[in-house]
């Protein structure tokens, strides 16, 4: 059992939890994830490790309430326990040596995962452009943290209610057009966003790393549920990734596979909320 030591509501649908998990905290690196199971009847759900404190022995997860299992997790309070938390899983993000300037692109709750990447690079002395996209002003999260973890923070909103008016891809394109020389782009967010970031960077041949989010069960490489096609080959995101070269990923296949249980997910959520979201 894993105790929740801090719980913060970051916006209407996004929750931060700091969890007591000393073994995981001792080893976690940016880019790795955990799998949780709320209770005995729960499913196993992957979440990226947003932060860790080796001394306190805690890890931080930030998640958006999107279905039954995240709804149940969000219902827990400080002092409550999560039944199972396993990690750190996946390969930590590897950065090329000698990189000078990097654009880290986060979409929505993906910013929670982009943030530790930016922080790590920023601490390494790399010039970091953190491009964080949200639908509108009221769902902006982690602005202070992201500011501290980057050289230039570009907050974008789809409706223009805050910061730059437009998508993260528009901002990225503008920066490139304006002469910014990125050695690498790291994109984390919804699959379509990652796909379009790769489209932006492709003509300039900028190495673009994406953090994939396929359906997972065990997270240790024993089922292949999370398999993705990268460069025409089957890869298991849980052990070979979750980071991959975005130019080689079959995003359309990933989107299809992620919709496998759409109907059943809806049914489970309805049972929890009586049909009300």
């Amino acid at each position: 059992m894993y105790k929740i030591v801090t719980r913060k509501q970051l916006n209407d649908a996004v929750v931060l939890m700091e969890i007591d998990a000393p073994y995981i905290a001792a080893k976690a690196e940016a880019g790795q994830f955990i799998i949780y199971r709320v209770d005995e009847k729960g499913e196993r759900v992957p979440l990226t490790i947003a932060d860790y404190d080796r001394e306190k022995g805690t890890i931080t997860i930030i998640f958006q309430v999107v279905g039954a299992s995240t709804t149940e997790l969000a219902r827990l309070n400080e002092g409550d326990y999560i039944h199972d938390v396993v990690g750190p899983l996946g390969v930590a993000t590897e950065y090329d040596e000698g990189i000078k300037r990097v654009a880290v692109v986060g979409g929505g709750v993906g910013c929670a995962i982009a943030y530790p990447q930016a922080k790590k690079l920023h601490n390494m002395g790399v010039e970091v452009d953190l491009i964080a996209g949200f639908r509108s002003k009221d769902i902006v999260i982690l602005e202070d943290e992201m500011g501290k973890a980057s050289s230039h923070l570009h907050i974008c909103t789809d409706d223009g209610s805050y910061g730059y008016h437009g998508f993260v891809t528009n901002k990225l394109q503008e920066l490139i057009d304006g002469g910014a020389k990125f050695d690498e782009v790291i994109a984390i967010g919804p699959v379509p966003m990652m796909k379009f970031v790769c489209k932006v960077t492709k003509p300039y041949d900028i190495k673009t790393l994406v953090s994939l989010n396929p359906i997972m069960i065990d997270g240790t490489g024993m089922c292949g549920g999370c398999r993705v096609t990268v460069d025409g080959k089957i890869k298991y995101a849980c052990v070979d990734g979750p980071d991959f070269d975005g130019q080689k990923v079959d995003f359309d296949e990933l989107m299809r596979r992620n919709s496998t249980y759409k109907e059943q997910e809806k049914a489970h959520l309805c049972r929890l909320t009586g049909g009300v979201r």
Partner: peptide
């Protein structure tokens, strides 16, 4: 093999046996 509806036997059986996907009150689909 990347189509929706292709499983490894390990995944199929893990969902059923470990996660009890055949029971309605368990979350795993």
């Amino acid at each position: 093999e990347g189509l929706v509806g292709v499983y490894s036997a390990n995944e199929y059986l893990t969902r059923i046996n470990l996660m009890k996907a055949y029971k309605d009150d368990y979350e795993t689909p």
